[in-house]
């Protein structure tokens, strides 16, 4: 069994989770703390991947990344970056697809922190950044954990978007899910089983750890 699909999946999961952790927090903060009408439009757009077919999403992302599109041409001329059929491309696709998981978890966590303690921090002379770092984030550890784990687990199991954007380049864009698909297409069920069972066990252990940690956190 070729181990490279596992390495690609793990790399993809780590990159997507790290990027979304940084990008989703300010967005979640804004969405949790505002009642302005634009928030509904932004949140609906950010969570669209939950209901939209990954293939459709992958198709539009691939079209946008193509060197023939204005965005793809700009990336190529300005940074020499070709996203279609590259690891960077599937990371971008994974971020779009994983955003709802991280955003929903963090928004729930921020909303769960009482507005009174945030305002108490402001009244004690602290700004938004210090309040976020010292008051809000330490009181939403469970939400962070849920966001990290579900985003990572979703990214390593990603299939539709990754296949559309990245194809199946060994060691670059061929993830475990794609390896399973290709083994089945080749009627190599034993090979497919070998990849699939590892993904099932790893996903189960991840969810088990998440639930155990969340229960421990709730008891504190």
């Amino acid at each position: 069994m070729d181990p490279s699909p596992f390495l690609v999946s793990l790399r993809l999961g780590a990159c997507v989770t790290a990027i979304l952790l940084v990008l989703a927090f300010p967005l979640a903060w804004a969405l949790a703390r505002t009642r302005r009408p634009w928030a509904i439009a932004v949140e609906s757009l950010a969570t669209l991947p939950l209901v939209l077919s990954p293939t459709v999403l992958g198709f539009y992302l691939l079209s946008a990344m193509s060197p023939r599109s204005p965005f793809g041409a700009f990336l190529l001329s300005a940074f020499g970056l070709r996203l279609a059929f590259s690891f960077e491309g599937i990371v971008l696709g994974g971020c779009v697809s994983g955003l709802p998981f991280m955003l929903t978890a963090l928004k729930a966590g921020i909303s769960g922190v009482s507005r009174n303690i945030v305002e108490a921090s402001y009244s004690l002379g602290k700004g938004r950044v210090e309040t976020a770092l010292r008051v809000v984030i330490p009181n939403m550890k469970g939400a962070f954990l849920a966001g990290l784990v579900t985003t990572f687990a979703h990214a390593i199991g990603e299939f539709g978007i990754v296949l559309m954007i990245g194809g199946s380049i060994p060691g670059v864009t061929r993830t475990v899910s794609i390896a399973v698909y290709e083994r089945v297409e080749a009627l190599d069920f034993a090979g497919a089983q070998a990849y699939a069972i590892v993904l099932v066990v790893a996903s189960y252990v991840t969810m088990l750890a998440l639930n155990a940690l969340q229960r421990a956190e709730a008891r504190r």
Partner: peptide, 8 residues
Amino acid sequence: PQDYALFP
């Protein structure tokens, strides 16, 4: 405030 708003 009414609920004291202590940092947990």
